[in-house]
Design a protein around this nucleic acid. Structure first.
Length: 199
DNA sequence: CCCTGATTCGC
DNA sequence: GCGAATCAGG
């Protein structure tokens, strides 16, 4: 597998999209092992895995005289009076999205309170799949000359992965988004009519 | 059995 | 670095 910037970014996108490793693999025409392997190497944020491989299987060890007696006593009174100044506490960073207006799928939460963009992923692959099923018409709603640039390109799938005609939109994506304006609209389902979100 | 992701390990 | 094999939980 040739991991070019192209494929890597694609992997990252799909990974961030929340697709399963197998699904990503299908889309990139590689195995899920390759996906998860690469993802791991890239240090991509692990997604909820169905298992926890904490237990080691009985293997010939011999070595490992357990030098360090492990880190014992971890400040048991660490949170004595600390009423916790960081209620947010986002242990797992979702996406280091810089300078992103976060027009992202805001939770429909009608509560006008403080709807902060938490690491919660609300957007499901509701979009990336949709175009694959219903024949996406080759509508030239986007730039008449896509894939002409080298920068980021809309990765909206056109056609079925694995088939000869499959390709990505390739139009100029919105800042901070993997899709172009047109596809972003359908990619990010509008929960509350946000015609002014994307800027 | 199918799915999932994680880790291991030969290459 | 790569990914098949393997592990392991749902």
């Amino acid at each position: 597998m040739e991991w070019t910037e192209e494929t890597i970014s694609r992997l990252k996108e799909l990974w961030a999209e929340g697709l399963s490793t197998a699904e990503i693999g299908r889309r990139l025409s590689i195995t899920k092992n390759a996906v998860v392997g690469k993802a791991h190497r890239l240090g991509l944020p692990p997604r909820p895995s169905p298992i926890r491989r904490g237990v080691k299987k009985p293997e010939a060890e011999g070595a490992k005289p357990s030098v360090a007696t492990s880190a014992p006593a971890a400040e048991p009174a660490a949170k004595t009076d600390a009423v916790d100044a960081t209620p947010e506490a986002a242990p797992i960073a979702a996406k280091p999205e810089p300078a992103a207006p976060t027009p992202t799928p805001a939770p429909v939460t009608p509560a006008p309170a403080a709807v902060q963009p938490k690491p919660v992923k609300v957007e499901k692959p509701v979009a990336p799949r949709a175009p694959a099923k219903p024949k996406p018409v080759p509508q030239r709603i986007s730039d008449p000359e896509p894939q002409k640039r080298r920068g980021p390109s809309c990765c909206w799938p056109i056609g079925d992965p694995g088939t000869p005609g499959f390709h990505f939109c390739g139009a100029v994506p919105l800042p901070g988004k993997p899709y172009c304006a047109e596809h972003a609209q359908i990619a990010y389902v509008k929960l509350r009519d946000r015609r002014d979100n994307v800027a």
